[in-house]
Design a protein around this nucleic acid. Structure first.
Length: 570
RNA sequence: CGGGGCGUAGCGCAGCCUGGUAGCGCGCCUGCUUUGGGAGCAGGAUGUCGGAGGUUCGAAUCCUCUCGCCCCGACCA
């Protein structure tokens, strides 16, 4: 491609609204432009780079013998009503009506459509398994889209769905896909890790996320320093505490704490360590009220709580409910004495580790000291906290958690029969018995992967594309467009490299060298060849890798081989 | 949804408090010079000041409503 003819509007300054590096650089490098919140157009440079991601994804999916299909973006509401998600999915599902008033939605994910596609067609265990995928635009009306392609409302996703006759078969395919995903992200040149994850509203029995490690990541990953356990912190299990720490038998005493409510305030007021507090939270779960206890320094993991309670909705109780349950204003709740009120108390394991605790007294302006969990209240002990740095690993002896930030670029789920049962996707097994198909699904954010690659590969001057994702392989810069030798050599190299099958960018604009160099650094093509009159006189050109600071001279008549060699070394 | 902020030229911003005929830098166009890390000089074009209503002799500026965008939180495959 000739840069003089390319639609490549680069920017010197970052638009004010961009916050993260990948977003800023994608805007500056002329890859994307915003149309509305979370909705972007891809410019030629953006398309090129996303196509590279798609090509890698497609080739690995095909190699794993999944088959490509293409499903509609506009989906009739009936399918979503069948699965039950029309009512459960919430506002993220963009709903619309056609001219007849029939309801549709824009597909945020395609379990319903694919299930509808195979049911009726696949009737026998002999026709299973199948694995179908597509690369397609999705729409999710996110509450807060941000960071450009990282979290858009409209985005390109590769989604795959497999159908099986048996659990074993489903799990085998899950493993095949896990490997395919590892190949994909390795081929993209990304530093990533695979973690256990929560399956969220998509449902299912287990799932793994593929996380590109980057400080700007929206997810936190806990990984063991000793064994290979790694999980999203919203999922990470913690080591259980089986026995109570013995208390020293002091009697409970009330202390007056006028107007002092939060753990910080009370610990300051009583000159007590926050670790000796039991934090009491009151939740409304579906239609019930539950009380949750944690050690004073930890935070509740609402996903774990939701799973334990097996409820759809969970939120902190209103002030009125808290007063009703505890008999005291907000800020003085505690577990002691609550047993009369028919509320279920769940305590995190960490509470067992506090022999003599301070809690609210369920009485205005009052706390109590010397509370002994075993002696003074009954609770069900479960894993409820969010994992933090230094927590003990649940899987090995002596390992501890390390917490890092990650960008979720891929997610695979074993769904089980959630959709096949709801939608009647059944087959006949060897015994002629009707059974729901076992399903798995597998997703990759294409644009997000490209964005994550930039987060991981950039410097002050711009993008440093990993070769496999780069919009072009080689960038040729004739330094002076009025120098015939210079232009001639550039044209010749441009043509030869194209003949080698490379994607080549020739900066044939009549601009000064500085402009070209700065744009080159910004758009980040991995190999750059500079052709200037000075070195040309000696029969050489300059070859520079974007990731290295220094250029080296190469003989003009060996230029093609040198460029190929440099690319192969990347 | 709660809290905060911003909408003025393609981009980045000033002007608003204290009302008086819209400005700066970059970019863009023309010409000459320049040509190895975002050139210099000269000339030039570009605005429903997000929108609607109001106050006023007069509104980018004050008031009301509204739309859009961004950040933090809540929420979320």
């Amino acid at each position: 491609m000739r840069l003089s003819k390319m639609f490549l509007p680069t920017l010197k300054e970052s638009p004010a609204t961009a916050e993260v590096v990948s977003h800023k650089l994608m805007l500056r490098a002329g890859m994307i432009r915003k149309l509305a919140a979370g909705v972007y157009s891809l410019l030629p440079m953006g398309v090129r780079s996303l196509r590279k991601v798609e090509a890698i994804v497609r080739s690995e999916m095909n190699r794993a013998e999944a088959e490509e299909v293409s499903m509609p973006v506009v989906i009739p509401s009936e399918l979503w009503k069948e699965s039950g998600r029309w009512d459960l999915y919430g506002k993220e599902l963009l709903r619309l009506k056609d001219r007849h008033g029939r309801e549709f939605c824009l597909g945020p994910t395609h379990e319903e459509v694919i299930t509808d596609m195979v049911r009726g067609e696949l009737r026998s265990y002999k026709q299973l398994p199948v694995n179908l995928y597509q690369i397609q635009t999705k729409f999710r009306d996110e509450v807060r889209p941000r960071f450009g392609l990282m979290r858009g409302r409209e985005f390109v996703m590769k989604d795959a769905y497999s159908f099986h006759a048996t659990d074993e078969c489903a799990e085998r395919e899950y493993e095949v896909m896990r490997r395919a995903y590892m190949n994909i992200f390795e081929r993209c040149g990304l530093e990533f890790c695979v973690v256990e994850a929560d399956s969220g509203s998509i449902g299912g029995s287990f799932s793994h996320e593929f996380m590109v490690l980057a400080d700007t990541g929206e997810d936190a990953v806990a990984s063991c320093t000793k064994c290979d356990y790694a999980a999203n912190t919203e999922r990470a299990e913690l080591r259980s505490v089986e026995s109570f720490k013995t208390s020293d038998d002091k009697k409970i005493v009330e202390v007056s704490t006028p107007g002092v409510k939060t753990i910080d305030e009370v610990s300051e007021f009583l000159k007590a360590d926050p670790k000796s507090f039991i934090k009491t939270l009151i939740y409304e779960a579906d239609d019930n009220v539950v009380v949750v206890l944690l050690s004073g320094y930890s935070d509740v993991n609402e996903l774990k709580l939701k799973r334990i309670l097996d409820v759809d909705t969970l939120e902190l109780a209103s002030d009125a409910t808290i007063e009703e349950v505890t008999g005291a204003p907000v800020g003085f709740a505690g577990p002691v004495g609550l047993k009369d009120k028919e509320v279920k108390i769940y305590a995190d394991w960490s509470v067992r580790d506090i022999p003599s605790a301070i809690t609210g007294a369920n009485k205005k302006d009052t706390h109590i000291e010397n509370v002994s969990p075993e002696r003074d209240f009954k609770a069900e002990y479960v894993d409820l906290r969010i994992a933090v740095e230094g927590d003990l690993c649940p899987r090995c002896e002596g390992g501890r958690f390390e917490i890092r930030r990650g960008i979720e670029v891929g997610h695979i789920f074993k769904l089980g029969t959630k959709y096949s049962e709801a939608m009647g996707a059944v087959f006949l097994n060897e015994n002629g018995k009707e059974r729901p198909m076992i399903m798995c699904c597998y997703g990759i954010g294409i644009g997000r992967t490209a964005a994550a690659a930039i987060e991981q590969n950039h410097d002050e001057a711009g993008i440093m594309w990993p070769r496999p994702l780069a919009p072009f392989d080689c960038h040729i810069i004739p330094v002076n467009m009025k120098d015939e030798g210079c232009v001639g050599a550039a044209e010749a190299l441009y043509n030869s490299l194209k003949e080698e099958g490379l994607d080549v960018l020739l900066d044939d604009r009549k601009d000064r060298a500085g402009v070209k160099f700065n744009d080159a650094d910004l758009i980040g093509i991995p190999v750059r060849v500079t052709i200037g009159p000075k070195t040309l006189k000696e029969g050489s050109l300059e070859l520079k890798l974007r990731k290295e600071t220094d250029a080296r001279l190469i003989p003009k008549d060996k230029a093609v081989e040198e460029v190929m060699a440099a690319l192969n070394g990347l």
